[in-house]
Write a protein that binds this DNA or RNA. Structure first.
Lengths: 400, 400
DNA sequence: GCCATTTAATTTGGTTGTCAAATTTATTTT
DNA sequence: AAAATAAATTTGACAACCAAATTAAATGGC
C-alpha cells in the first residue's frame, strides 16, 4: 500500500485559512477550522517566526466591543518571491508574484522554436525569467520557487513529462532538468491543471473545498479540486475534458479520435466549419483569435450559418458540462479561459440546455460562475503551482 | 472549513490490510504499508484485544528458513454478525455475513407493496431480517451492524433520503427511522454505491486503492473508489453514470431527459427497440430478463435487427466507459451486474471501440475486469456498507 | 479613576500516535 | 550447545493536539 505521507495537518489547514480569509483573528481560525485555540496559537507562532505570516492592524472597528481586541493575521507578502511560467506554442508567459499572491511583474517572451530538448527549453525558461525580473532589479536566484506549465502528459508528482508538443523527446525528467538549470526548486504540471490551481489559490475557489474549472481556448481543459486539493487522476494524469465523447462517430478531433468535445467547440473546430459554410471573403482577420471574433460578429449580425455553428458549440458544451456535473455533483463550476468572452452570446441557450441535462434533485444545482482572467491566467496558475510547492516544502521543515 | 475528522489513520490502514491479505505477518504489514514495526505491534495488539483479529497458524511452510517464525494474522470471523438488505421494486434481498465476509445466510422476501412510508419500509426490513436469521437460530439483536441499500437520492452521511421510488415521502431521515425500529446501528446508501463497496471489501477491489465499478441491470450505475474510499460526490450524491449523455437530443430516458446512456443500454431501452423492430411472436418469455435472453438468442442466431440493437448498446456503452476513463484515468474498471452475462457477446466490439475512444498515453491503459456476481451482489454490497459502518465505529472507540 | 466584566490569546500539563533503537523470542544451522 | 538469523516487542523519546487554567487587553459602571 501507500507510504505514509501525512504532513502536519493543522499547519496546512491554518495556513490555507489565513490565505483564504486574509486578515483573520486566531479565535476565528479556531472556530472555522475546528482546531483548538491552543493549537492555533502554537502553529501561528511558528508561522510568524518563519516569517510566512504577519500580524496586521485591526481596523479601528466601528462597533465598540469589550474584551481583548483580536489581532488579525495575514500572509506576509514580502516573505518570498515566486514565479510561474507557461510554455506555449510560440512564447513563454511569465508571472512573478509575492507571497500574498499579488502580481509583481509579468512578461511574454517569444520562443525561437516551438519544440526542443528539455535542456533547450530550460534555457528559454531561464531567459524568460531573467527578462521578467531585470526591470524590478531581481534575479532568478531571488526566487523561492518556480512553477512551469506545459501541455501534454505531465506527471506532476514524479516531475516527468511523458509526452509534450513542447519537448522533442519522450519520458523526460523535465522538473529535474529545470531545477538543475535554474538553481531553484521547480514544480511542473499539465496546463489544464493550472487554471484550477489559480482559482484555488488566488481566485473564485479560495476557501472552497470542492469545485471544477473548465477552460476553453485553443483546446478544452478541466481541473478538479476535491477536498481542497487538485485531483490529478488516480495515476497522475487524467481529466481529459476536451476529449470526452459527446457524439458517437462524431466530428474528427485533432487527436485523431471522433466525437471529442474539443472537435465541436475549440477554435479550430469552429473555424473548420466556418471555412466550409462561410465564404472566406466574409471572414476578417488572419490569426485564429481574430477569425473567431469575426465569426461571432457575423452571428450577431444575423448570419444563419455562423449562428448555427456557435449554437451547436453551445449545445455540445452544455452536454459536456452536464456530464461533469452528473458525475461529480460539485457545488461550484468555474468557466474560465479567454474564449469565455463570448459566453454571454450563448449563455441563455447554455443554461437552458444544461438544466435539461442534469439530474434534478431537491437541492440547489451546481452554481456556475464565469471568471474570465486576463491573459495571465496560465502564468498565474503556474505561479500558484510554485506556491503550492513552496508551502509544501516549508511545512515539511522541522519547527525551527 | 471542515471540522477535524481524522480518525486514527494507522489503525484503519492496518485493519484494511489484514482484510485484504488475510493471513499476513506483522513484518509484512509494516513493509507494505510503510508503518513502523513498533506501531504495527501496538495496533495489532489492540485489535487482538478487541477480538477483531486473530492469530492463525502459519502453514508448515515448505522452504525451511531460520529465524523466529512469522505469526500470521487474519480477521476474526466470529467477532461479529452483520447484515445487508437491498430494497428493490418488489422484494427485499438480505445477506448475512460474518466479520470475515463469508456468507452465513441469505433470503429474498417479497414486498407487499413497492412504495410506503419510512416506517412501513423499516417494518418490512425487520421482517426480512427476522426471516433470514430464524433458520440459523439468530435474531436481529444479534447483529452488530446493518446496511440498507435503496435506489434514489440517498445521502449516506446524513442518513437522509431525498427521494426514492421506495418511499412515499421526500427528505426522510430514513437511517434514523431504521436504527430506531431495528435497535441496531444502520447505514444507508444509494444502491449504485453498493456494488463498489462489495468489490472494495470482498471482491476484485480488495487491496486496490483506486477503481471504478460500472453496473448494468434494470438501470446503469457507477461507483467510484478513490484512495481506498468510496467517493460519493462532493455533496454526498453523484456518479449518475446512467444519466450521462451520450447523444445530443438522443433517445428518451425514463428520467424524462434525452440521450442518457441508460436510454440505450438498460433493459427497457433494448426491449423498447425490440418491440418496434421485431415481431412479438419472435420474442419468448414474459418478464424483462426472459425477453432479454430471447433478444440475445435472436441476435446469436443471426437476426439482423436484434444484432443491430445489441451492437448499438455495446457502442454506446463503450462511449460512456471511455468518458469515465478519460476523466479519472483509473487503473482498474470492474464491470459488474447481472446483465454482464452477455458481455462476451459484445466484448470484441466493446474493447475495440473503447480503444478508439480513450486517450492513448505511454503506459498501460485501464485494466478492465468483468466480475459477474451471483444475484446477491446488491445485498452483499449492503453488508459491506454495514461492515464499513461497524469498523468506523470500532476504530473510533478509545483503545480499551 | 478604579474595579468588575468581557473577550482574545497564551501557558500548563497531559494524552495519544508514532518511530528509532535496543532487546527479547523463537527458530535453524553449524 | 553455540552461533546465526529473523520476527516481534519493549523502551524511551518526540511531535501534535487539546482541555483547562491563566494572563492580557480592552470597555462599562460606579
Amino acid at each position: 500500500m501507500s507510504p505514509r505521507t501525512d504532513t502536519r495537518g493543522s499547519r496546512r489547514t491554518i495556513l490555507a485559512h489565513i490565505r483564504a480569509r486574509s486578515g483573520i483573528a486566531r479565535v476565528d481560525i479556531a472556530r472555522d477550522t475546528g482546531i483548538s485555540p491552543a493549537t492555533v496559537t502554537t502553529v501561528t507562532a511558528e508561522l510568524l517566526a518563519k516569517g510566512l505570516v504577519a500580524e496586521v492592524l485591526a481596523e479601528p472597528d466601528s462597533g465598540t466591543k469589550r474584551g481583548r481586541p483580536r489581532v488579525l493575521l495575514a500572509l506576509n507578502s514580502d516573505a518570498f518571491l515566486l514565479a510561474g511560467a507557461k510554455i506555449s506554442n510560440n512564447h513563454i508567459t511569465v508571472a512573478v508574484i509575492d507571497f500574498g499572491g499579488e502580481l509583481v511583474a509579468d512578461h511574454v517572451m517569444p520562443l525561437p522554436r516551438a519544440r526542443g530538448t528539455a535542456r533547450d527549453m530550460a534555457d528559454y525558461v531561464h531567459a524568460a525569467l531573467t527578462e521578467t525580473l531585470a526591470p524590478i532589479g531581481k534575479d532568478v536566484a531571488d526566487l523561492a520557487s518556480i512553477g512551469v506549465g506545459l501541455s501534454g502528459f505531465v506527471d506532476a508528482e514524479s516531475g516527468e513529462v511523458h509526452w509534450s508538443p513542447t519537448l522533442s523527446t519522450r519520458n523526460v525528467p523535465f522538473r529535474d532538468v529545470l531545477t538543475d538549470r535554474l538553481g531553484v526548486p521547480v514544480q511542473i504540471d499539465n496546463d489544464a491543471n493550472l487554471a484550477a490551481l489559480a482559482e484555488l489559490w488566488f481566485g473564485a475557489g479560495r476557501g472552497m473545498s470542492d469545485f471544477i474549472v473548465l477552460t476553453i481556448e485553443e483546446g478544452v481543459g478541466m481541473g478538479i479540486v476535491l477536498d481542497n486539493r487538485l485531483f490529478r487522476g488516480t495515476r497522475g494524469i487524467g481529466a481529459e475534458f476536451g476529449h470526452i465523447k459527446v457524439q458517437l462517430d462524431g466530428a474528427l478531433c485533432r487527436c485523431g479520435q471522433r466525437g471529442c468535445l474539443e472537435a465541436y467547440i475549440a477554435d479550430y473546430a469552429l473555424l473548420r466549419e466556418a471555412g466550409a459554410a462561410i465564404g472566406a471573403d466574409q471572414m476578417d482577420g488572419t490569426g485564429a483569435p481574430q477569425q473567431i471574433d469575426s465569426l461571432i460578429a457575423l452571428a450577431e449580425s444575423g448570419n444563419h450559418a455562423a449562428q448555427s455553428i456557435i449554437d451547436r458549440a453551445g449545445r455540445m458544451f452544455s452536454l459536456g458540462v452536464a456530464n461533469v456535473i452528473n458525475i461529480f455533483d460539485p457545488e461550484l463550476i468555474i468557466l474560465s479561459g479567454e474564449r469565455m468572452r463570448f459566453f454571454s452570446y450563448f449563455e441563455e441557450t447554455f443554461r437552458q440546455r444544461l438544466a435539461q441535462n442534469i439530474i434534478d434533485i431537491d437541492r440547489d444545482p451546481a452554481r456556475i460562475t464565469v471568471h474570465t482572467w486576463e491573459d495571465l491566467l496560465w502564468a498565474k496558475g503556474a505561479a500558484a503551482l510554485a506556491m503550492e510547492g513552496l508551502t509544501d516544502r516549508i511545512l515539511q521543515e522541522p519547527a525551527g
